[in-house]
Design a protein around this nucleic acid. Structure first.
Lengths: 109, 109
DNA sequence: TTATAATATCGTAATATTGCGATATAAAGA
DNA sequence: TCTTTATATCGCAATATTACGATATTATAA
């Protein structure tokens, strides 16, 4: 054993876990925050922004993309990345919902 | 190599990555959703709710607790768990902020 | 005191992630 | 064409996660 038992959970649960997992690394949080900061499609800069080697960043970008958190567009020589708002909105909604439900009836010890 | 280079990132980035990482597993999402559903402190039930062995769930609960997502209170024989609202609020705020900043000026390709 | 019950920890095997050097790929420029 | 630039992929070592049986711990019940 050792592999995650994804099959035992709902698609929604697995999907959300995948989004969260993709954000579960400081380098990927830093990439997201950089994309928010510059507020635009960014080509190339990301490698210069972080203290990690190019292949490592390429891998992190791939994971963010696979989770649906960022989009990448080929622009001639390079690739431009930007945040996919839909994913952010989905996360925001999810936590807002939990927050509301907790406030309604919070009989915690 | 192989270890995450946490030292190269800010405390905020590491902290957020830790929260996200804790939610990056369907079993832990399922635990959180169960706690929201019952809307109360829950003792014991969790093991019966999920298709995982008791030690595995105990471990997942520990990770959620260490990340600050849930609180556990010893109640005689058993332990009662509930969601820590502060963590949820922090996540909600974080994504709301990103969402707002993206909507303001989204020049994405 | 001796069960019983609820939970945690240990130990370990299977698997996944992280990081990067080396190398491939693919477009732009000389 | 040949070189440069930007990015991706391969392959591998180090480390981390996942899962669970066995066992420890701790509190209640008999």
């Amino acid at each position: 054993m050792g592999a995650t038992k994804s099959a035992f959970f709902t698609d929604k649960q697995n999907n959300l876990a995948n989004l969260a997992k993709a954000l579960g690394h400081p380098a990927r949080i830093a990439i997201m925050e950089y994309l928010v900061k510059v507020n635009a499609c960014v080509c190339g800069d990301i490698v210069n922004e972080l203290p990690l080697a190019q292949p490592t960043i390429s891998q992190h970008l791939k994971e963010l993309k696979q989770a649906g958190l960022i989009k990448g567009t080929i622009e001639g020589n390079s690739v431009c990345y930007c945040i996919d708002e839909k994913a952010i909105d989905r996360l925001q909604e999810y936590f807002k919902n939990i927050s509301i439900r907790l406030q309604k009836n919070n009989n915690c010890c």
